Simulated assay, not measured.
Amino acid sequence: MTTKLGHLAEMADGHRSPEVEFLLTQGHERHFKIGEHLITEGETTDYFYDILDGTVALARNGRDGRRQILSFMSARQFLGAASTPNYPNLATALTQVTAISYPRSALEKALATTPGFASEFRVVLTRILESAHDHVYTIGQRSAVERVASFLLYLRANQARFSPDGPREKSNHVELPMTRLDIADFLGLTIETVSRAFSSLKKSEVISFKDSHSCDILNIDRVRNLGGRDDFTDNRGSSYD
C-alpha cells in the first residue's frame, strides 16, 4: 500500500465502507520518467491512476502517424477510468509523474456500494469532462494567435481547478510544462505557427517569458478578447477572477 495519500483517499473521508477500505489498500505509488507511457492504446483497462504530481498528455494517434493531444492532465485528475475494456488513448508523461494506481475492479465495487463516494468521484469526472469541452472551444474556428490565447486561458483555468492543494483562485503566471510541439498537436497547428503566435503575443506585450516553460500574462483583457470569452468556468459554476 502506498504511504502517500492522493485525491481518491481524500474523497473517501466520510464515505467509508468495506469496499472503499479495500480499494485504498490496493493503491500503489508509481513513478514515470519523461516520455514513459502510463497507458497505451489497446491496453486492457485493468487499472486507473490518481495523479499526484507532474503533467500527462492524453493523445490518440491516427493511422497516418499524426497525433492529436486530447488533454493535458495533472494533479487531482483521474486517468484510465474508461467505460471500455481497452484504453482508446495513449497517456505519456511530459514531466516526471507520480501517480497512485488502483485496480479497476476494486474501484467499481467501491462505487457500486458506496453512494457518497460515487458522488464525489462523479464530480471529478465532470470537471475532467468540462476541461475537454474547454479544449473543443479552444481549437474552434479561430486564428493561430486566438487559439494560443484561448489555450492560455485553458491552462490558467486548469491550474486553478486542479491545483495539488485543491481548487484555488487563478494566477496570471501560467506554467508551460509541455513542448511547443505538444501545444501544436493540442491546438491542431504546426510547431512553427505556435512559435510565431507566442512571439506575436510577446511582441505586443500581452505576455512575457522568463523561460520556455512558463509565461506571465501581462494583459488579461487582451488575452480574453483574443480568446473570444471572459474565461473558462470553475468547478463551482462561476468564472474565476
Rank of each mutant, 00 (worst) to 15 (best):
V145M: 08
L5R: 04
L70D: 07
R168P: 00
R236C: 03
T92G: 04
T92N: 09
E36C: 09
N61R: 15
T113G: 04
S150T: 11
D221W: 09
I191A: 02
S17E: 01
L8K: 00
R67H: 11
H31K: 13
V223K: 14
P85R: 06
T45M: 07
R16W: 14
R122W: 12
A110T: 04
R67K: 14
P115Y: 09
E43W: 11
L187I: 13
T193K: 05
K203W: 08
H135Y: 06
F232I: 04
H31M: 11
E19R: 01
G6A: 02
R224F: 01
H37L: 11
G237L: 02
F162C: 02
D50G: 02
T25K: 03
S71A: 15
I183Q: 08
F22N: 14
S17R: 01
T3Q: 04
C215I: 06
L129Q: 11
S83D: 12
R147C: 03
D64C: 05
S200P: 01
R196E: 09
F186H: 07
D165E: 07
S17M: 01
S119W: 14
F186S: 03
L70T: 07
E146V: 09
D165W: 03
G228M: 11
R236S: 10
T138V: 03
S119C: 13
S204V: 09
L181I: 04
L129G: 12
K170L: 12
R127A: 13
T84N: 10
E175L: 15
E205M: 12
R16K: 11
Y154H: 05
D185T: 09
L152Y: 02
N225S: 15
R122P: 06
H173S: 12
N158A: 12
R196V: 07
R16I: 08
Y87N: 04
V174I: 15
A75W: 02
A75K: 06
E175G: 14
L201V: 09
I217A: 15
G14F: 02
V123W: 08
V20E: 06
F22Y: 13
E169P: 05
L70V: 12
R224L: 02
M11A: 08
K109Y: 08
R76D: 10
S131T: 10
F32M: 10
E21T: 10
F198W: 12
F121S: 01
V97T: 05
N219R: 08
Q77K: 13
E21N: 13
R30E: 06
L153H: 05
V20F: 06
V223M: 14
A99C: 14
Y102I: 00
A75F: 10
N158D: 14
L129N: 10
K202F: 11
Q77S: 13
A184M: 11
T40W: 09
T45E: 08
F186Y: 13
Q159C: 01
S83K: 07
D241E: 14
R76H: 11
R76N: 15
V174A: 00
G237C: 03
E43R: 13
T233E: 01
R142I: 04
L58W: 00
A91N: 02
S195H: 05
D230E: 14
Y154V: 00
N225V: 08
T126E: 15
G14I: 06
I217R: 14
F151H: 08
T92S: 11
E120H: 08
D50K: 03
T138R: 00
R196C: 05
K202C: 09
A149F: 00
H173G: 08
F209N: 01
Q26G: 02
V123M: 12
A132H: 10
